[in-house]
């Protein structure tokens, strides 16, 4: 930072912009009072208790977790083989295929949502869980392809060739060499996908139903009707969960590897 005053100042400003609102939300969650105000009035855990006892939040949390876990698994199951085919396979028009799988990044989610609403919920009479599962999987595919692709691009193809030379069939090579090499990449892709699905609002908003509603949508509903510290408490709980995930990620793979993989 020294010798780069502008860059340094911007960095500090960036941190402040990111952290101050979080501090605001977290501190108001611990208020003993009835209003969502800053500074909090007194200190208590009562709103955490209320949030955890509020049935709509809890069932929505379960729905969100289900959706995030299953759509992440599907995105990886589809995305990893696609990545391998794109990078290691001898398929014609590789860049076209890659473009196809990255396109959800540029198509507006509302358009995807609307299409799924028409086709899957109205057309095929499926539940909103199925529609959301399809929507989220499509949404997550680019992350799965990109992040695992980045870690595959860093791996020396000669390592897989070496396995073949030593007598391993292509399938055996995949399971005993390629997959272990890809493990950090798959882990990062999964993490990123999970968080992306869990936080998604546009798709979930469009495809929700009374039976299946995700947590962010439920919280949004709640804020529109009542503005009390329970919403801050729920947000803080989500934040805590995210921090735990981040710590696990750092301990097992390392941030440098996870986020390095996205840029390279």
């Amino acid at each position: 930072m020294r010798g780069r005053p502008v860059l340094g100042t911007l960095a500090v400003l960036g941190y402040i912009i990111m952290i101050v609102p979080i501090l605001f939300v977290v501190s108001t969650a611990f208020t003993a009072g009835d209003a969502l105000t800053f500074p909090p009035q007194g200190l208590s855990l009562r709103w955490f208790g209320e949030a955890l006892a509020y049935q709509p939040f809890i069932s929505a949390l379960v729905s969100s977790l289900q959706l995030a876990v299953v759509s992440t698994a599907l995105a990886l199951l589809l995305g990893v083989p696609v990545t391998l085919a794109i990078q290691r396979g001898k398929i014609p028009g590789k860049s076209l295929v890659e473009g196809l799988f990255l396109s959800p990044l540029v198509v507006p989610e509302l358009v995807v949502g609307l299409a799924l609403y028409q086709q899957i919920m109205i057309g095929l009479h499926q539940t909103s869980f199925v529609a959301l599962l399809v929507g989220h999987t499509v949404l997550l595919l680019p992350y799965a392809v990109r992040v695992t692709g980045a870690s595959l691009a860093l791996a020396d193809p000669a390592v897989e060739e070496a396995a073949r030379g030593l007598g391993a069939s292509p399938l055996r090579t995949f399971f005993s060499v390629t997959l272990p090499l890809l493990r950090p990449g798959i882990f990062s892709a999964g993490l990123l996908s999970f968080v992306t699905s869990f936080n998604n609002v546009p798709l979930s908003l469009l495809l929700q139903s009374r039976q299946f509603r995700t947590l962010p949508v439920t919280m949004l509903d709640y804020v529109q009707q009542s503005y009390d510290p329970m919403i801050a408490a729920m947000s803080t709980l989500i934040l805590a969960g995210t921090v735990v995930i981040a710590i696990v990620a750092e301990k097992t793979v390392g941030f440098a590897k996870i986020f390095g993989g996205i840029n390279k």
């Binding site: 020396d156 000669a158 060739e161 070496a162 396995a163 030379g165 391993a168 069939s169 060499v177 272990p180």
Partner: peptide, 15 residues
Amino acid sequence: EKRNLGMVFQSYALF
């Protein structure tokens, strides 16, 4: 995998 040849790569290519 059917040739039974030992290859040493320039990049070593260890697992």
